[in-house]
Amino acid sequence: MATVQLREVAQARSGDKGSSSDITLFAPNAELYEVFKKQVTAERVKEHFTGIVEGEVYRYEVPNVLALKFLCKEALGGNAASTLRLDNLGKCFGGNLLRMKVEIPEDLLNI
């Protein structure tokens, strides 16, 4: 097993939904998608965003595109028009999630 940041094996996209941030994590193949399903839980994402996400984190599986979608409630300090946060549209959340570390079987790192 190798410990890697998600950025080494995945892609992400994020944005805002009112005061919530919406993050989608994309796996490059089915094998890594299965690893992500086990390790990138709503609880771990909530912990990863400690001090930023004040509400609940919900995870949705989107297997047809090998993705996990996270809805992080109360993450933007209001909505895009009223928040004082620098990232008022939640665009940095995807890049931030990609810094999370996961354990990947070494044989999957070369796929």
Rank of each mutant, 00 (worst) to 15 (best):
N79G: 01
C92P: 00
K38Y: 01
E61Q: 12
S20E: 12
Y58P: 00
N96V: 08
S19L: 03
V35C: 11
K46I: 01
F93I: 04
R7F: 07
N64M: 13
L89H: 14
L109F: 02
G51W: 08
G15C: 07
R85E: 10
N64C: 14
L76A: 08
E43F: 03
A81S: 14
E103H: 00
Q5M: 15
E54H: 15
C72V: 06
R13P: 00
N88T: 09
V40Q: 04
V35M: 06
L84D: 04
S21D: 02
V62S: 05
M1D: 10
L76G: 08
A12I: 01
D107A: 05
P63V: 00
R85M: 15
V102I: 13
S14F: 02
G51H: 10
L25R: 07
S21E: 03
Y58I: 10
R59E: 07
N29A: 08
L32M: 07
G15R: 13
Y58T: 08
V53G: 14
M100R: 01
S14K: 08
L86T: 11
M100P: 01
N29W: 12
T24Y: 11
V45W: 11
F36S: 13
Y58G: 00
Y33N: 10
F26T: 01
N29Y: 12
L109D: 02
L6W: 14
M1Q: 09
A2Y: 06
K38S: 13
A2N: 13
E74T: 01
S14A: 15
L97Y: 05
Q5Y: 07
E34K: 14
G18Q: 09
S21I: 03
K91P: 01
C72Q: 08
C92V: 04
L66T: 11
G55M: 09
M1F: 06
Y58R: 14
L109S: 03
Q5P: 14
T41A: 09
C72L: 15
M100Q: 01
P63F: 00
R44Q: 13
K91M: 01
V65W: 13
R59W: 03
R44M: 10
H48R: 04
R7W: 05
F70G: 08
P63E: 00
